[in-house]
Nucleic acid binder design. Structure first.
Lengths: 222, 222
DNA sequence: TTTCAAATGTTAAGAGATTGACAATCTTAA
DNA sequence: TTAAGATTGTCAATCTCTTAACATTTGAAA
């Protein structure tokens, strides 16, 4: 139920940040928050925050502010965090293990139901409650469990193969850490790319061209 | 030697992508590339690519195109990838190990010289050539080695403590995976934040509000 | 119950980024 | 050596995002 249709990516990428902060406040028992307070704590303008929130509806009370728990819940609902989309993870290396643990809490809208690898050393090992399975069993698993999202924590070449394989098994949503870009091959997919190398190189540029550079999130393109 | 002064963050965040792709072409032995080809392969407009590159100088030859190896080297130089900034990493969990391996190749402008953790189980273990050191020895290490960048792969509370500690030891550049925002405390720092939870939540939003959403990189805020 | 103060919701202006069009320049072939 | 073809470099227009200002609404106190 968005108030307006075209919500821009810039707005969407700020929502998780709002959510995180509000959740934190909620836990601390804070009842009420003002857009100006939020702006100070997050390093944004109050205007932007009010405008962002009003893309989805008027969650505040004029003359009073926002009720923390209510606003937090609303943003969580907008993000769809309670959906718990069934997810599989490919690649049980260090990165894969780290991301599996990240998702284990299920707080971000995804429920991890399987981890796969093709290295004999890793198959059979435990990640949280889950046992790492052989990639050979992927097709069967997908047919039985119908996972909805796949996290790709494998090198580029493997990602190319696996991405297309998973697509053929019906998966259309990806969290992608590799440099292979699935969405260029399959335009009907939703792919969230995380390019850690790019992030490092950007940092390198900012350091190298130092004069008094300010902070910028991946989110807040300045 | 930037042609113009204020290069926008939007442009900078595209440079690593150009670099990666050109490096790939270079390895394959491709000599010449056109802006139109680049645009097709990367899913951008040719105009944008030409404009981006011209922020730094005219690297192409009119009527011919760009020489792959030359352009690749130029972008690498602009990003400062050969600087090999001395870097320490905090947190030898799965994420830390993954990022240490990422940086081990030194291809992204940083040279890892130390890994720290405070868990007795991890101290003394190996990550590549490096041995995980006790966080207690951080101050001495910093005084002797003068690291220039620190990668924070620790939980929020630890990041808060460590971030300020490292700042007091003179470190001003951070690659930050935690949710603690150093730059709000210390405005004279350069911080590249990677918020994996945010990335997941954004993906969750995009899936939940599906109609025919298109691809968007963390980089290319659409 | 009424009024004042305060903070949101909303609109419009300003800043920034992207796109398209064209001029400038180079390569190549005759 | 010259001219044609091709592609970059650059400028201007469009589009998008952000910021500021103001109108609107609500809550609290008198």
């Amino acid at each position: 139920m968005p108030k307006r249709e075209n919500i821009s990516m810039s707005v969407i990428r700020r929502l998780p940040r709002y959510y995180r902060f509000l959740y934190h406040l909620k836990e601390k028992g804070v009842v009420r928050i003002l857009s100006t307070e939020l702006s100070q704590k997050l390093g944004l303008t109050a205007s932007q925050i009010r405008q962002d929130l009003n893309c989805f509806g008027g969650f505040g009370q004029q003359g009073y502010g926002y009720i923390v728990s209510q606003l937090c819940d609303e943003i969580g609902r907008i993000l769809g965090l309670s959906n718990g989309y069934k997810t599989i993870l490919l690649g049980a290396g260090n990165l894969g293990r780290a991301m599996a643990n990240h998702m284990a809490f299920g707080a971000d809208g995804f429920q991890l139901i399987g981890v796969f690898d093709n290295s004999p050393e890793k198959i059979g090992t435990k990640i949280g409650d889950l046992t790492v399975l052989d990639t050979a069993g992927l097709e069967t698993f997908c047919k039985e469990q119908s996972p909805f999202m796949a996290a790709l924590c494998v090198p580029r070449t493997a990602a190319e193969r696996l991405g297309n394989l998973l697509y053929s098994y019906g998966i259309r949503n990806f969290w992608n850490f590799s440099h292979y870009d699935i969405s260029l091959q399959h335009p009907d997919t939703i792919v969230e790319n995380v390019h850690l190398n790019d992030s490092l190189m950007t940092l390198c540029y900012r350091i190298s061209n130092n004069p008094n550079q300010k902070r910028t999130d991946v989110t807040s393109v300045k």
